[in-house]
Design a protein around this nucleic acid. Structure first.
Lengths: 137, 137
DNA sequence: CTTCATGCAAATCTTTTGCAGGCGC
DNA sequence: GCGCCTGCAAAAGATTTGCATGAAG
């Protein structure tokens, strides 16, 4: 799996700056996690980076436009970000713990396309989130 | 299809008040549409109802808790509400026009449950939104 | 009457923007 | 050096809350 680096920033027309690299690093390290802008901000501050929350938002927005990160609006009112490793996946959110599990289903994707097709549309993107609870035995 | 009325408010432990009835009426009239709190507020103001935006939010929150309305967080940053007619359905949002089409797929639902099951979870709720574009012939 | 609801204004929370100074190339 | 970036503070947008008054049962 390709690690994202400076080249990806340049390709997106973004200068390679401290804040951007720091954020990128953090996102890579946290691959699989889903962080809010605030999470990232706090994390960076603790790691001796003097960075502004506004910059975190600005950088994340640029990264999203560049296809480097994915932004999700779960029901929390706060957007979460994760690095885009290319392999599309959907999410399952544990209502009680807040834990997020990723999954994929080619079968569901196929059905989605059939449905859109049937209505005369093409899917540009989609969002599937299951809100779940641990099954008690 | 049962029209929602005062009984449903009482059942939810809510007093039957002017604002609540007005909002309920509006939601019923707009069945199939997806309104923001602001939309509802403006609509009511224009129809000579002296109501506060805070009340609209409070009432919608209560209605959601009572299962009278559904709240959706599409990518717009503003939540939208629609009356809950009981028949579950998912949404397809036309990226260009903003139009929302509803659909259902028993096949997809079944797959969702199988996936959750496989991970040891039970689905409490789910959200599936397809962001689509009219197909050009 | 008693309680629950409401309107208004103020507070909160998240995200965005303006601006003056700095850093990357 | 020139222009893109950044931090900070202020602004903006959405939603919530405190409080005194008013309506529902």
């Amino acid at each position: 799996m390709a690690t994202i680096e400076t080249g990806d920033l340049r390709k997106a027309g973004l200068k390679v700056t401290q804040p951007r690299m720091r954020i990128l690093e953090l996102l890579e390290t946290s691959s699989g996690k889903h962080l809010t802008a605030e999470d990232i901000y706090r994390e960076l501050i603790q790691h001796h980076s003097d960075i502004g929350l506004a910059t975190v938002y600005r950088v994340l927005t640029q990264f999203e436009a560049a296809g480097i990160v994915l932004k999700h609006n779960f029901e929390s009112g706060q957007a979460v970000y994760e690095i885009d490793r290319g392999k599309h996946h959907d999410h399952m959110v544990d209502i009680d713990s807040g834990k997020v599990v990723e999954f994929t289903s080619a079968a569901i994707e196929k059905l989605q396309h059939e449905i859109a097709e049937r209505h005369g549309y093409t899917i540009e993107d989609h969002s599937l989130v299951l809100y779940v609870r641990k099954k008690r035995k």
